[in-house]
Every structure is written in structure tokens, then in C-alpha cells.
Amino acid sequence: MPRLRLVSARRIALLSPLVLSLLACGGKPEAGSEDSSPQADAQGRIVLTEVQLKNLGITQVAATAATVVPITGLPAHITAPLAASTEVTVPYAGVVTQVLVDEGSQVQRGQPMLRVQSRELVTLQAELARARAEAGVAQQQARRDAVLFKEGLIAQARTQESRARAAIARASVAQASLQLTQLRPSTRGAPGEFELLAPQAGRVLHRAVKPGQALDALASAFTLVTGESLDVEFNIPLALRDAVQPGLAVELPAGARAKVMAVGGDADAGAQGLRVRAQVQAASALLPGQQLEASLHLPAPTAAVTVPASALLQQGERHVLYVRQGQAWHGVVVHLLGGDARSAVVVGEGVHAGVNVAASGGNLLKTLAPVE
């Protein structure tokens, strides 16, 4: 603990008349008190009676053992959940003719979401019809060749060749059919119009299309999510990388709480911080794209205590806390770990859970018993 400077009687005599008046006369001296002026002991601690504390407006509170260290003011933004979201894309270029679902809608797997008219679909349907026709012809030829081979009229090589052609034709049909699994040709629209089907059940989180819009192949049309969770992304200082692990709590505005899910393995080039992704449940009040401030709760060291933020005083680049021992007060240099607008988490020699600290009036104590 830094050495405290002894406050002599001469120094006390030089204090302002107002302070001395409060110390000595704020009410009458207690019965039996020979001297109502503050006294400094050999360690530089200032001794104040309860009456003097009251007159000077010095209040005290007991420090409590800290369980978490809040790291506040972290700029964050809400995003679609990484593990529970799906981008629904348009397989072929075309023009949107009708939007069938909107943001917030619940959809079932296979439900039509969008109608698109596409020349590519016309081409695909023609290719599928040709592939089916060729597959039928190849299959018939393979059956005929099998009969002819059994009767000894053709060589085995010709039979094998016809079987291979039939297998290739079936594969072409399967491939053309697979391209239609996420869409369904519209029976009510113009040629080449198809319905884009939901690949899974979920809620439409984002709609990126509107009627009349021209879309390229594989353009994103909707974002689907399952469940009600959202992701919270923010950066932390690189110095905290060893302290941040999945599972830590993150506090958000309006009392919402999230949990750290992943910590980045490389530094963000722009912010020179480490990316963190948390997940918040039942986030009906939060929206993707929303900007906010998050507070990360780190585990507190064993010796850390929580004190009111008003108890912490700035002295140059150091933080000072005034601690009571009996009727004596002295300043202790502490290391600030974190905190918020109401409280601070600190560690310091002689500062432990249960010790009384000056919650207000610390600046006056700093005048009476300054820290060297």
C-alpha cells in the first residue's frame, strides 16, 4: 500500500475556517470530549467522530465481495442467428410476379413463398421433357437388347452398352428433376412462372424482394429463422481475450440478457479488438440490425470487492478509495477492474469485503489525509 503522508496539527490548522467550523462545532462537542478537532495518528490516518462525519456529509458503506466484473459501453449490433437461420434463394433468374409471405409470417416446409417468371425455367422444363423421353427410349432399347442377347442374336458388349446409355439417361432425368425440388411450376400463371417453396419451417425474418423486381440466379429472397433467438455481435479489447469464454453473461438494454457463444480467433483489422458473438433468447423487443450497448460480465478475482462508483476518487492516473479502521480513515490506491454507473469493482491492499469505505465526502478526506 502506498505510504500515506502524515497530516500534522499545523496542516489541520491551515484548513479553511468553514471546514474547521464543521469539524469542531457542528453541534456541540460530545460530553467528555477534550478536543473536537480531527486528529491524525502516526500512520497519517485522520480520526473523525460520528458527529464530525455527519457534519461533513461523509457517508459510508460496507464493501461487498464481487462475483462479476462488468465491462460496459461495448458497441454491439443484433444479427440473425447464425445456427438457426436459412437464406432462401431464387434458383433461376426472373421477375417477381407475386410475394406470398411477408416478414414475421410463419411458414411450413414446402409452402409457396414467392412467384417468379423465368425464361430459364422454360428451358429447364424442355430439358427435363427431353431427358425423360431419351430415358424412356434408352430403357426400351436396353430391354430389347437383353432379350436378343439371351437368344444369342447379339453380343454381350452391345447389351452392356445399351444398359449404360439407359443409366446415363436416368441420371439426366434425376439431375433435371432435382433442380425443381425447391420450386413448383405455377398452374395459374404464364409459361415459365414458378413458386419458390420454403425449405424448412420457420419465421420470415427478412424479405428482400418485391413485385416487379428482376432477380439474378441465386439471389437472396428471404431469411428464415427457427425459434426466437437472435445473435449479438460486439468487439472486446485484445487484453481481455484470455478472460472471455463461451457461457459468460452479457447484459443488454431493457433487462435483456445474452450468453457468449463464440469468441473470435483473430483481431478485427479496423477496431483492433476481438469479435464476440452472444445469443439472446425471447428477443421480441430486439430487431436484427439494431445498434445498442452491451455489458460483458467477467468472473471476478477472489480478492475483488464492489464499492459505490462515488467512492472511487481519481488522483492522476491512479484510483483512490478511503477506508475506515475504527474511527480512523486512510486512503488506499486500488486497481479498477470494471464497473458501471452505480458501482465499481476494485482490488487493493487492505480492501476486503465488509470494510467500510467513504461513499460520499471522499474529496474532503483526500484533503485531510492525502495519499502520496
Rank of each mutant, 00 (worst) to 15 (best):
A146Y: 06
A341E: 14
V51C: 02
G362C: 08
P70H: 09
A164D: 12
L128K: 11
A174I: 15
T49W: 02
E349C: 09
R11I: 15
L196K: 03
V345W: 00
L15K: 02
T67D: 14
Q125S: 15
V323S: 00
G270M: 03
N356E: 15
K150F: 09
N363Y: 13
V320W: 02
A24F: 04
G255P: 14
Q200C: 07
Q52W: 06
Q175S: 10
N363K: 09
Q279P: 07
P237A: 04
L56G: 10
R275C: 06
M113T: 05
A198V: 06
V371I: 05
Q182D: 08
Q291G: 04
H330C: 07
D268T: 08
R3V: 05
V250A: 00
P253D: 13
V334R: 00
Q327K: 08
G348W: 03
V323R: 01
G316R: 07
V47W: 11
V147H: 04
L368A: 04
E120N: 13
V323I: 07
S284I: 09
A311C: 00
L23C: 13
V95K: 10
S16Y: 06
T306M: 12
S162Y: 09
Q43Y: 12
V47E: 11
R11Y: 15
S284M: 11
W329I: 02
Q106W: 10
L230F: 07
L368F: 00
M113N: 07
A63E: 13
G104V: 11
N55H: 13
G247T: 12
G27Q: 05
L22D: 08
S162W: 10
D242N: 14
G265C: 01
R143M: 12
P38D: 07
T64W: 02
Q290E: 09
T89C: 02
